[in-house]
Each structure stands twice: as C-alpha cells, then as structure tokens.
C-alpha cells in the first residue's frame, strides 16, 4: 500500500507515451501513404488530368517514384520526411518546406490567438454556470452554447462576415489576406474574424465539459465535507473543487485544439488567410500530393503531441493515477 510519488514514475510514463505516440505516427504515415500513393488508379493521371501527354505522365511518375515497388516508395518518402525533405510542390514548383513554412507561422499565430482566448473564456463560463446552476446565466449560456456548437464552422464564418463585415455592420475586413512576406501580428484586424470563428467552434465543448466536471465535483462527498469542516467558501472552491474539476478538462482541451487543426482548413479558406489550412484546400483541389502528404503528417503529429501533453497534465492533477505507475 505504501507507494511513493516518484518523478521517476512520471518520466517513465512520459517515455512510454512518447513511444506509443511514435507508433501511432508510424501507423499514420502508412495510412497517409496508402491513401495517397498506393490506392488503385493512377495518381499521376489524377494529378495531371485526362489531357496529359504520355511524356508528362512519365515524367511525373518518375518524379513521384511511382515506378518503384510500393515498399521502396514508402521508404523513400518516409526517410525523406524524417530528414526534412518533404518533396516539391507540383502546383507551385517550389520545395514543400519553402512553401509551407510561412503559412505554418500564420496558422500557428491564428490557432494560438484562438486558444488563448477560448480556453480561459470557456473555463470561466463553464465554472460560473456550474456554480450558479439552473439559474439564468446557466440556462442562457447552456442553450446558446448548444446552438453554437451545432453550427458548422463555415456557417459561423459566413454569418460573422455577414454581420460584422458586409451587411449589418461593416467594422471588420471580410477578407484576411496577409501579404506574403509580412507577419500576421502586424495586421491584427485580419485576425479578429477568423479567430472569433475558431473560438465559437471550440468554446462550447470545453465550456460544457468544464460545467459538467465542476458540477460533479461540487456535488462530491469531499466538497461537502470541506464545507462541513467550516472552511471558507473561497478555499473550498480554489483548493478542493477547481483542481479536481480540471483533470478531465485537459483531455478535452487537447482534443479541441486538435480539432482546430481541421477547423482552420475551412476558416482560412473563407477568409483567404494564408495558412496551412487554405494550403491544404488548394493542394487537394490541385491534387498536389507531396503537399497533401506533408500536411497530413504534420497535423497528425500535432494531434499526438497535444494528446501527450494532455495526459501529462491530467497525471499532474490526479495524484491517484501517479502511484500506479
């Protein structure tokens, strides 16, 4: 029964999760590869279209190593991936890394802004709704969040444009094209609507989980006991309720941040924001396989890392799980 809290236990856990994450990424790479290059049909034809000349097709096939055996194709691609050589974009004719690097920065800024706004906001709304359960704030916010959560992001985006940029009010730009070469933080007004859309996409879920978790904690025996011990309400909330309520929240936050990775595709497209989301959409339309592969792997990697961070955070807040390591 006597187990001690060991940092060693936690680092072993992290290593194990990292390994698991790597295995997942490996499997993902197989899936991505299979989806893009190993499917029946001719990728070269799909890319160049029906009117392509045989010479062009042959050149492309050589470029994409399609004449090699499947496994060596995969190996070439994987090793290239790990070395940072992501191939050349077929549409833009520049290395994928050159093409994507600035867009990655743009998207990272957008996601960061959205996260920084949505997470504290959701925690605040969720906690307050739980505290004032079944009263006006709770009912109103729950119903509003329910509606917002159901709407697809592109609908929210277009409605926001309608409301704030084109028709009802005209206070914000409808398009957020960052001039190439400049940085998104130099154009803060361009960030507002896309970030707002993402916040609306993510906040309802996090807020609901926070509310549910908080309610469960507030009704728990140990919170009741804390009150019966005569502790001040502030201590009860901050020391007993909140830490235990936040445990399950980290998982959801990670999931939602990962969801944002998919959400930016639509949002960046609507606002013509130059990030990896709109790059993905273009690449798909143009059958630009190297870019598609690179982005898919990138987003999967982000997801795996976020989940790992969420697990570590949960462990930190839940001592009970630590001693089983």
């Amino acid at each position: 029964m006597r187990a001690r809290f060991r940092w060693g236990g936690v680092s072993r856990f992290i290593v194990r999760r990292l390994l698991l994450g790597l295995i997942v990424l490996f499997m993902v790479s197989l899936v991505v590869f299979a989806a893009t290059q190993a499917l029946p049909g001719d990728p070269a034809r799909a890319i160049l279209g029906r009117s392509a000349t045989p010479a062009a097709l042959a050149a492309l096939r050589r470029h994409l190593h399609l004449n090699q055996a499947v496994f060596s194709q995969y190996w070439t691609w994987l090793t290239g991936l790990l070395r940072g050589k992501l191939g050349t974009s077929i549409a833009a004719q520049v290395p994928v890394t050159t093409l994507l690097a600035p867009k990655l920065v743009n998207s990272a800024v957008l996601v960061a802004v959205s996260a920084v706004v949505s997470i504290p906001l959701s925690i605040a709304i969720g906690s307050w709704a739980a505290l004032k359960r079944d009263k006006i704030f709770d009912t109103l916010s729950s119903n509003l969040l329910l509606v917002l959560a159901a709407l697809p992001e592109f609908v929210v985006a277009v409605v926001l444009v309608l409301l704030l940029a084109t028709t009802v009010f005209q206070v914000l730009p409808a398009i957020s094209t960052i001039p190439p070469g400049s940085r998104p933080w130099n154009f803060p007004s361009y960030l507002v609507l896309p970030a707002l859309t993402l916040v609306i996409a993510v906040a309802p879920y996090v807020a609901r989980i926070v509310r549910a978790s908080m309610i469960e904690v507030l009704e728990s025996d140990y919170v009741e006991m804390a009150r019966l011990k005569g502790l001040p309400e502030r201590t009860v909330m901050l020391r007993h309720a909140l830490p235990n309520a936040l445990g399950p929240v980290f998982q959801v936050i990670a999931l939602n941040l990962a969801y944002l990775a998919g959400g930016i595709v639509v949002v960046e497209y609507v606002f013509n924001y130059g990030g990896i989301g709109s790059a993905m959409q273009e690449a798909v339309i143009n059958h630009d396989l190297p870019v598609v592969q690179a982005l898919a792997m990138l987003i999967a990697a982000v997801y795996v890392v976020l989940n790992l961070l969420a697990d570590v955070a949960t462990i930190t807040v839940t001592p009970r799980l630590r001693t089983r390591l």
């Binding site: 899936v31 998919g262 598609v292 898919a296 997801y303």
Partner: peptide, 22 residues
C-alpha cells in the same frame, strides 16, 4: 490503438486527402 490512429486525423482532413487522390 487502431482507433487512435484513425483519430489522429480531423474528420475533414481524411476526406480531403481521399478526395485529393481518388
């Protein structure tokens, strides 16, 4: 674990990738 692998993709992403190819 198998489920985790599929979950590594946002829903829309997988559809895009598949549509890109096929």
């Amino acid at each position: 674990r198998g489920m985790d692998v599929i979950m590594a993709f946002p829903q829309i992403m997988l559809a895009l990738v598949a549509a890109a190819v096929v």
